[in-house]
Design a protein around this nucleic acid. Sequence first.
DNA 1: CGCGCTATTGAGAGAGCTCAATGTGCGTGG
DNA 2: CCACGCACATTGAGCTCTCTCAATAGCGCG
Lengths: 239, 239
Amino acid sequence: MSSNDRLIRKLQADTVLGDYEIETLARLPIRPADLAGRQDIVKEGDRPSKCCLVVEGVAIRYKLTAHGDRQILAVHLPGDVPDLQSLLLRTLDHTLATLSPCRVGFIDHADLLDAITRAPMLGRALWRETLIDAAIFREWMTGLGRRDAPERLAHFFCEIGTRLQAVGLAADNGYPLHITQQELADAMGLTTVHINRTLRELREAGLVTLSDGRVSIPDWSGLRARASFDPTYLHLRSR
Amino acid sequence: MSSNDRLIRKLQADTVLGDYEIETLARLPIRPADLAGRQDIVKEGDRPSKCCLVVEGVAIRYKLTAHGDRQILAVHLPGDVPDLQSLLLRTLDHTLATLSPCRVGFIDHADLLDAITRAPMLGRALWRETLIDAAIFREWMTGLGRRDAPERLAHFFCEIGTRLQAVGLAADNGYPLHITQQELADAMGLTTVHINRTLRELREAGLVTLSDGRVSIPDWSGLRARASFDPTYLHLRSR
DNA sequence: CGCGCTATTGAGAGAGCTCAATGTGCGTGG
DNA sequence: CCACGCACATTGAGCTCTCTCAATAGCGCG
């Protein structure tokens, strides 16, 4: 699938696009690049002049505290534009990095601004993407503040599965996800050791298994129940 | 200060506005209303047809978990439009409520959409507001996941002070904030009891005092240091 | 074949939680 | 004007979830 098609497909998971907007997107210049895993793309403090579309693979955004602890803020799947906000916010307040090896596409701010000037409804669709991004932050905040480790982790696996399904990249019984327990810990606000034990707990309960870069979900409804997962916050078009 | 002026002033704290955008904002129909404290304005699941501008007072947004715990997601000060996202996201994924008694201004989605159609740069300024909103969420996530209670609380007091200063509502030595320890606990992802003890710790260290609805900061630089506070994420125009 | 990264497990420690009692200020009804 | 109820703040004591420290094991790669 081309970079442009990946973006079109993702936007269509969230919003109804008109022919003109689709056409504009199809013509948008996107420069492809292949990146290794665990590698920073743009760093906190940078002032990028382009956005980065995830075409294949998984990207993350994170912050470091003054004490050197890391908090992973978001996980980005194919079709996402993790740093879309850099279009209007000059300096980056966090770092964007690859998790797995990624194929990405760079889109110049100038081209994107030009596109949304010519197709204002496309601008709204992109604005909407950033609003969904924020909705996901809110859900994560709720988890970080008020959910215990098993629920938080179960919720995470539900969310990623649901988002992958929305772009056609998840099977019914699981999905690929090359994430280490250290990274899971940094995303959940926990430690590796505790992630390990919590993962075991969920596995022994027959809800999820993470191994060899694959999340297996033998019991979706059990997992959803364990997480009290309600996908409304993802603001997907169907479901 | 009128509702429109309050909004203009806030947007100018974040973005340079042109005369035409200011003019458009000044003409925007805003219906004022006075609301009591601790009262929901719009609830999770609602599909509002208007946005709510905070003119005076403090508003919050929160979510409830399946177990009935509350997480406060954001604190909104005069000039903020806490539910601006409802312009593009049909159903609300959280609740908006007053904290203190508030004067608010309701702006119909139709009027706002009309304004940003006529003044696309105003649309970008509003988009930018929602992006800053998201940047604050990211900072809070970092705190919830990776900062201990004293640092998290100190960071909160720094943020609110800085944001109030940006709209000219804070003195050098503190600011008014009618928030209970229960609400602070729900914002910090902690319990009331622990907030109480942490507040005492910060008070005894001579950094902040919260009493009678007022935050007193005898030692700003000490507080900032305790919190490792860096205001970059607020994306304010000056500073 | 040895280093480095990741996963796993045990044991002890601690930050933050729960439960519960007490204090304090304020508004309301008698 | 006083008594009472109620919301909020404060403090103690014990508990638990999660952390820290540390050791072991598996695996890929130079």
